[in-house]
Design a protein around this nucleic acid. Sequence first.
DNA 1: ATCATAGGTAACCACCTGGTTACCTTTTGC
DNA 2: GCAAAAGGTAACCAGGTGGTTACCTATGAT
Lengths: 126, 126
Amino acid sequence: MDPFAALADPVRRDLLRSMHPGPRRVVDLAEGRAISRPAVSKHLRVLARAGLVSVEERGRERHYRLDRTALEPVRQLVSELIAPVPPSALDALELEVRRVGRDRRAGLGDGTSATSTTTTITEDTA
Amino acid sequence: MDPFAALADPVRRDLLRSMHPGPRRVVDLAEGRAISRPAVSKHLRVLARAGLVSVEERGRERHYRLDRTALEPVRQLVSELIAPVPPSALDALELEVRRVGRDRRAGLGDGTSATSTTTTITEDTA
DNA sequence: ATCATAGGTAACCACCTGGTTACCTTTTGC
DNA sequence: GCAAAAGGTAACCAGGTGGTTACCTATGAT
């Protein structure tokens, strides 16, 4: 289970937030939640396998601690995607534009493209 | 579908990377991949519903463009979790430490805790 | 010694997900 | 006008996910 998949569940994200200030016991982590303790246990196992938490066994208690290093791939992807197109990639973009141009060669004189419609799909509550 | 869930799939992450330099057509996005075009279509719909991409219809082509703004919640969570414990939260940490101390009152004199074992679970290839 | 507490595991279940093939519509090229 | 290309949708299927209850072990408190 990679960190991305582990972060996909809102419960797990919230568990991580709970551990942010410091290690937490399973009972404490389960306390406020609507779901059962075994469910929390499962989520913690997922987080552990993703490397996002480490466990410290203290007697009968297990203290789960956030392991920030496993967030690195996520941080990296986000900055990679947020970053403006690097100069070195401008060639590729240029090529793409030229290829599209070739596809619709002779077509619509200016790029104002009357048929072009940009749509942002909004969660249609299906 | 929230952006976190959308990013959980490696194919979708790669699709986003493909769109990073600029908008891409569905055929182009499907080209290199092992999966069928309808499968790509489905992934694109998921990305669209998460707000991570927008579509520009150009005749029979649909150009999918990365929408960076939808990445904001992800970026925020990561920095929230990576950030060191803010001074204002130190009280909570303190309280937690004190509570644990109360729990094992009279117990183990120093904190060197012989029974304490920190374990980092590594993907056991189940 | 005994009882409560912490917490993991197993078995089960409903539902979602990601993939497929088949098919359909619309636009474009000739 | 007609064939090809772009791409969405439907129906279907296997497998994963998240939840539950029941149960078990181990540690700590009295």
